[in-house]
Design a protein around this nucleic acid. Structure first.
Length: 583
RNA sequence: GCGCCCGUAGCUCAGUGGAUAGAGCAUUGGUCUUCGGAACCAAGGGUCGCGGGUUCGAAUCCUGCCGGGCGCGCCA
């Protein structure tokens, strides 16, 4: 029986307004251009016999941390020194000789012990302001992902309880990664897997029925291992106030089930709403139950059977994963006839790859699911798909505290900290920034007191303030009726102006890197650096000048501000944070 | 016991095998105070948990310890 009406497979109505404009700007990154120059020069030197032949896969283009070493550098000569049996600096010189300077690169030079350094041409940098403005919301986006279909599945908390603060990290990491993959040119689908089938669901139904009966003063006990939390009482009370006593007259089994459906829907709605509150939206809410209704479950199991990874033992049915290199087998159907969660997971992943044909699937899991990673990949292999198409991203647990007091976030204990508290106390933007700026694999301790106190001295405001500042500048420009669409960008020569442009131009390659490594935590740090570059510029360069004769410079700087505002906004948007006009 | 992850400035954290290990907060001192000071500049603060190894080069890779987190079920 149906499937809950958690509206499986049906997008909720909040989702998928396009976050960003289409990919109409596909400029290759400067890094790529330099890579090509290096490789071309190398092979030319080789064909001339100046350098020995070797295979090179990676030209090793880096970003020096000191600008004195250029905008880009290349350490390839150091890596080639051994196989070429030559002094790395000599190799560097040979390669550098063959790289012409042009309007983009103003200088190419070598440095000990064997680097080739590249400096971008200031006039070219200045002209990029127009490129950035023209790209608008597309700036930073690329076609790197080539429209591959990628699914990002995250949170997927059992709908037997409300979403709590312990789930926020996964929600932020998942949604941020999805945004980034989207910007990197992947066709991204954000999915929540609703576990609306199985044993835990039955327990939830029975617990709710007991609470419902209690609402009418009847004696009823929560089943053993059932859901004791106060939220179940609220849920029962809510349903009572809406549906009255209509379930009392039904047979126990029927009542439990119908009431359960109601409860399940309420829980899913509640989860959806809380996620929405922290800036998380989905394209799909996928029902576990639907796997059984559609026959996908049986189909997937049959494939496992036919492939020979199936065995009956001790009354249970096993997936013989050890035959595929796993350290042990896993039960699929228990001896009492119930399927395990893992069984559904197999069918679910079969659905992802076979039925819905995703090129790649990324699952964001808490570190407590570590033990499932290998067996899931093994199952995908057994189903006949390349396990490399499946990525599991694990994030470490977060512990919450208030000052010295540890706060528990257990669903069953009833002592739940709601996301509302977190959002009200700390703020959505700060929460998102905080969770996103830490690498997934690091353990986190979230001190609510501290987060609250620091709100005034927070990088979040620092970044948003950069955006607000530009808005205020435009306000002034408008008051003075300054028209700056035709500015002469070559007037942008100040060190602070160029530094800001350099920083903005780093965004496209950053997005690619993040998409490649599935690491979204670099973005908040980049945004902070971008804001620093802007504030520094603002400090040093008066934009709307009162000095006579500065009219053209004012226009050029207004253009620069326009570009900066756009790039800051793009970053904030990618992080699902607000970009305020004033604060 | 076995497996995965973490250990970097007082605190919270960055750091694709490369050049002098960086930010924010906190501390101290300064700038400016005509586009919003929620700003800018500067200083102090590090045996990158400890010991070996790999190499031209290690915070980064390998290995052994120490410390912490999470797993190891016919639970999810």
């Amino acid at each position: 029986m149906p499937p809950n009406s958690a509206q499986p497979n049906q997008p909720n109505n909040l989702i998928k307004e396009p976050r960003t404009a289409p990919n109409n700007i596909m400029q290759p990154t400067t890094r790529l251009k330099i890579s090509e120059l290096v490789l071309n020069s190398l092979s030319e030197s080789q064909s001339k016999g100046d350098l020995p032949d070797t295979e090179v896969e990676d030209p090793a283009i880096e970003r020096p941390n000191n600008i004195e070493n250029g905008d880009f550098s290349c350490s390839l000569p150091l890596k080639l020194a051994r196989s070429m049996q030559m002094n790395p600096l000599t190799i560097a010189d040979k390669i550098a000789e063959g790289i012409p300077t042009d309007e983009v690169l103003s200088r190419v030079w070598t440095a000990r012990p064997g680097f080739i350094n590249f400096a971008l041409n200031p006039p070219w940098l200045a002209q990029q302001v127009d490129v950035i403005i023209d790209a608008g919301k597309s700036f930073g986006r690329s076609d790197f992902g080539q429209d591959q279909r990628v699914q990002v599945e995250f949170v997927s908390v059992n709908p037997t309880g409300p979403l709590h603060v312990g789930h926020v990290r996964g929600a932020v990491i998942g949604s941020a990664l999805a945004n980034i993959m989207d910007a990197a040119g992947y066709d991204v689908q954000r999915e929540y897997y609703v576990n609306d089938a199985g044993n835990q669901m039955e327990l939830f139904y029975k617990s709710l029925y007991a609470r419902y009966l209690q609402q009418f003063g009847k004696d009823a006990e929560i089943p053993e291992n059932g859901y004791q939390g106060d939220y179940m009482i609220d849920l029962a009370a809510d349903i009572k106030s809406e549906d009255g006593d209509k379930y009392l007259s039904l047979e126990t089994e029927d009542a439990t089930h119908r009431l359960g459906q109601r409860g399940l829907n309420r829980m899913v709605d509640d989860i959806r709403e809380r996620l929405g509150r922290i800036g998380v939206k989905y394209d799909e809410w996928f029902s576990e139950e639907s796997l059984f209704d559609s026959g996908t479950f049986d189909e997937a199991i049959k494939i496992i059977k036919d492939a020979g990874y199936w065995e009956e033992r001790d009354g249970a049915k096993w997936f013989t994963s050890s035959a595929l290199g796993e350290d042990k087998d896993n039960v699929i159907i228990r001896s009492n006839g119930q399927h395990t969660y893992f069984a559904s997971d197999i069918a679910y992943h079969y659905d992802k790859f076979n039925n819905r044909k995703f090129d790649r699937v990324i699952n964001i899991w808490g570190a407590d699911h570590q033990g499932h990673v290998n067996r899931m990949k093994t199952a995908v292999k057994a189903l006949g798909f390349d396990p490399d198409r499946l990525d599991m991203m694990l994030y470490q647990m977060v512990s919450f505290k208030r000052g010295d007091e540890l706060v528990r976030a257990s669903k069953r204990a009833g002592n739940i900290i709601t996301i509302d508290e977190l959002v009200d106390e700390v703020g959505v933007d700060a929460c998102r920034y905080f969770f996103q700026s830490r690498a997934a694999e690091t353990q986190m301790e979230f001190d609510l007191e501290l987060a609250k106190e620091q709100s005034n001295e927070n990088p979040v405001f620092y970044i948003q303030y950069a955006h607000a500042r530009t808005a205020q500048i435009f306000k002034l420009a408008q008051e003075r009726e300054i028209e700056f669409s035709d500015a002469d960008l070559s007037l942008l020569t100040h060190e602070a102006e160029l530094a800001l442009i350099r920083k903005m131009l780093a965004l496209p390659e950053l997005i690619e890197t993040m998409a490649k490594t599935l690491e979204s935590h670099h973005l908040p740090h980049y945004a902070q650096e971008l804001a620093t570059a802007f504030h520094w510029f603002y400090q040093q360069c008066r934009v709307v000048s009162n000095v006579e004769g500065d009219e053209e410079l004012t226009k050029a700087r207004l253009r620069l501000c326009q570009a900066a505002k756009s790039v800051v906004a793009n970053c904030l948007d990618l992080m699902s944070m607000s970009a305020p006009e004033h604060m």
